[in-house]
Simulated scan of single mutants.
Amino acid sequence: MLMSQAGRTLIKGALFMVAALALSACSMFRGDDAPAGQSRADDNRDRGGVSIFGGGNNDSSASQAGIGVNSFLWRASLDTLNFMPLASADPFGGVIITDWYSDPTTPNERFKATVYILDTRLRADALNVSIFRQQQQSGAWVDATVDPATEIQIENAILTRARQLRLGQLPQ
């Protein structure tokens, strides 16, 4: 049986109204007592949960507004790798990717680094560094192995710099 044009329009209108009511009901779960400008991402922090944008702990020095990871690790990573050209930096995801860097004394070898900041707290396990190395052979760049100690040395340099930054901001 075919439905008339008026019947289809009525059903579409009813579905539209149900969808509009369902979407408008989403805003009623937020209380009016929240301070202006507070993000819903902060709701979990108030209940002891985990915030998806960092700042899950209530240590105000662990993260700054506008950055989703530990600010000391972020700044220390940028400071430590400042000699390498920066390809990408995502402060919300906590990823820093450098472009290829070749030391002028060894032009047939180049390095690239990726730093992952995994937590809002200043901890050794909140940092992961990956180093990539290539050597030039017959005019083409070929992947080469990286000594695992190199990645550990860079992680330690970043952690040392992060501690220095943290101690520099303590009240005297």
Rank of each mutant, 00 (worst) to 15 (best):
G66R: 01
V50H: 03
S60Q: 12
S61F: 07
D42R: 12
A76H: 05
G68D: 02
S61E: 06
A65Q: 13
A65Y: 10
S60L: 14
L73I: 05
S60F: 06
S60P: 07
D43F: 15
G54I: 08
G55E: 07
D59L: 04
G68Q: 09
L73S: 03
N57P: 02
G48W: 05
S63M: 14
G68H: 03
G68Y: 06
G48T: 10
N44V: 07
D59T: 10
G68M: 11
S77F: 07
N44T: 13
N70L: 09
N58E: 03
S51W: 03
R45G: 01
S60G: 02
S60K: 14
I52C: 14
F72N: 10
G48K: 09
D46F: 08
F53N: 13
D46Y: 08
L73T: 04
A62M: 03
R45K: 15
G49V: 03
Q64L: 12
A62L: 04
G68T: 12
S61M: 09
G55T: 10
Q64A: 14
F53T: 14
G56Q: 02
G49F: 01
F72L: 04
S60D: 10
R45C: 04
G55F: 06
Q64H: 08
I67P: 01
V50T: 14
S51L: 01
R47M: 13
D42W: 12
N70W: 07
G66W: 10
L78H: 05
A76T: 06
G56R: 05
L78W: 01
S71M: 07
R47W: 10
W74V: 01
N44L: 14
G55I: 11
S63Q: 15
D43V: 15
R75F: 03
I52N: 14
S61Q: 10
S61T: 13
R75D: 13
N58H: 08
F72A: 07
S60A: 14
D42S: 14
N44M: 13
W74H: 04
F72C: 04
S77Q: 06
G49H: 04
A62T: 05
S77E: 00
R47I: 09
W74R: 03
